[in-house]
Design a protein around this nucleic acid. Sequence first.
DNA 1: GTCTATAAGGAGATAGAC
DNA 2: GTCTATCTCCTTATAGAC
Lengths: 206, 206
Amino acid sequence: MERNQNIEKRILWVAERLFLEKGFSGTSTTEIAKAVGCNQTLIHYYFRTKEKLFWDVFSPKVEQVLECLDAPLDESIDFIERIRNVVDFYFGMLELDERLAPFIVNELIMNPGRWGKFRDRYLRSESRSSAFDRFENMVDEEVDSGRIRRIKAIDLLLNIMSLTISAFIVAPKGFASGECDSNLRKSYLDNRKEDIKTLVVNGIKA
Amino acid sequence: MERNQNIEKRILWVAERLFLEKGFSGTSTTEIAKAVGCNQTLIHYYFRTKEKLFWDVFSPKVEQVLECLDAPLDESIDFIERIRNVVDFYFGMLELDERLAPFIVNELIMNPGRWGKFRDRYLRSESRSSAFDRFENMVDEEVDSGRIRRIKAIDLLLNIMSLTISAFIVAPKGFASGECDSNLRKSYLDNRKEDIKTLVVNGIKA
DNA sequence: GTCTATAAGGAGATAGAC
DNA sequence: GTCTATCTCCTTATAGAC
């Protein structure tokens, strides 16, 4: 990538990195400009406001993440195995970039209203035939047949997501190991993934 | 509480409230002063820096929370019941102030280094006879006797804490219910508490 | 103890030259 | 497109009058 070509895209890349590392409020447009190697006013020339830059960076990513939530629901395999796949899938998604989970949680805490439009689009009961509805139907069917204990789909999903996301919140902070060594973190995450799968699967047995 | 008496304490109360609601970086000393009804420089007269004010507010609370982590470990009752009590206990602690969990997680993400001294004091292997060590001994004993599945105490604790804290991160944001109605939130939290207890207990069965 | 005044710096955003 | 200069506002912190 040439240094002087496509400044607009380079601003997007750099902004994504800095927002992920330091959050929205912790990143200034001046800092983004410095990292890009351009003038601060250029940020505003291309994106007008910092808020709009934020959305230009993240709305495609949020869409992408939300839309692939149903990817691992292959109905040809055993339900328990499908749930294990869901955990693997979420874990793998967050493992691609370990800054993602802290970023999401932080922005959710600091400015919950900002994410309302995504909640409305993907979790509200009005929007039928969503990924969550397919997941819910699948869980209800297992409960009704008595193959798993009585549990609401939303609770199962919250359990899986809470445990998975939390693993990445704790991991890089050295709370688990006392060290920030890369191998230790990897083995910590692998260990957490397996334990979470065991926990979630045991937790829904009839 | 008189308005003109004990300004120092009033600064501490107001600072606690604002730090909890808006985080450390989101709260200015000017804003604290305005809420107290005093001059901004008075904050610095009493506490010198914002950082020191932060610690004067929270280190007693952190000490208190960390020191009572072993409170529910009454050894006269069944282990499974003891674990259920631990969940009840953590839940109750966070229910006392629903701003606590988001605050802790947010500060942990934004400035992990700040909490290093507490980690060192309470979770490092060097500091023996801590609350965690007693918990660990208890879990190891149950594993060795075959009464529960093979699990490390730290994993069990991370499971419990992740699920409990996450419930409060999601709760006030309307992600679960789509509403912020107080009764809905209460029933959401009660429901989560029971499901988490079931999950954690099922998850360690042999 | 409490105030005014102010330093010294950083933020987001805009006008206008080139 | 990209820049300089600048506006306005806000931050933490200090000096010194009272």
